[in-house]
């Protein structure tokens, strides 16, 4: 349990650094560390497959692309667009509403009852694969169609002029 609290502390610490860091590249690097702590959380919950996929997909691919984009557009303090006060106030109100919603949701959830997994070995690759391809086959395939449509959409957006492409 103490491991959990230590890792949870690290997750929150790094995620605060993500939003407070001045330099966007530093912010992404803190985000990488945050995702790394998430990987440790998954391992603590015995969800090996989820842990390693989080590691490969988020840390190894998506955040590399984030970093890639940031390095390419090369943001720095001088060229950073100034936000108007109105946007700042709107952001503050929105964020506060979100925080209140989350706190209220957590209060409704009985914290004293810990979540009990029916099968602690569910996260191992073999069990997860069997469940995904038996009980949850339809949602699994539907989500793959969702990803495919997102991919097609991205390709369409990337080709500027559909006639010449």
């Amino acid at each position: 349990m103490s491991t959990f609290y230590f890792i949870a502390f690290l997750s929150i610490f790094f995620s605060i650094l993500v939003i407070t860091a001045k330099n966007p590249v530093h912010s992404i690097l803190y985000l990488i560390l945050t995702f790394f702590t998430f990987t440790i959380h998954y391992i603590l919950m015995n969800a090996q497959f989820l842990a390693i996929v989080n590691f490969i997909v988020y840390m190894g691919a998506i955040l590399v692309l984030f970093l890639y984009t940031l390095m390419l557009i090369n943001l720095n303090k001088e060229s950073e667009p100034r936000k108007s006060n109105l946007v700042n106030i709107a952001g503050f109100i929105g964020g506060t509403c979100f925080l209140i919603t989350i706190v209220a949701a957590l209060k409704a959830f009985k914290v004293s009852q810990p979540v009990i997994l029916h099968d602690p070995n569910l996260g191992l690759v073999k069990n997860l694969g069997k469940i995904l391809f038996n009980e949850y086959l339809l949602p699994f395939e539907v989500s793959s169609i969702l990803l495919l449509s997102a991919m097609v959409g991205a390709v369409l957006l990337a080709t500027k002029d559909p006639k010449t492409a």
Binding site: I52, I56, G60, V125
Partner: peptide, 13 residues
């Protein structure tokens, strides 16, 4: 038991 994926993760890192 996820040995290959570990290698793959290290490579991507």
């Amino acid at each position: 038991n996820v040995g290959i994926l570990y290698i793959f993760g290290v490579v991507s890192l």
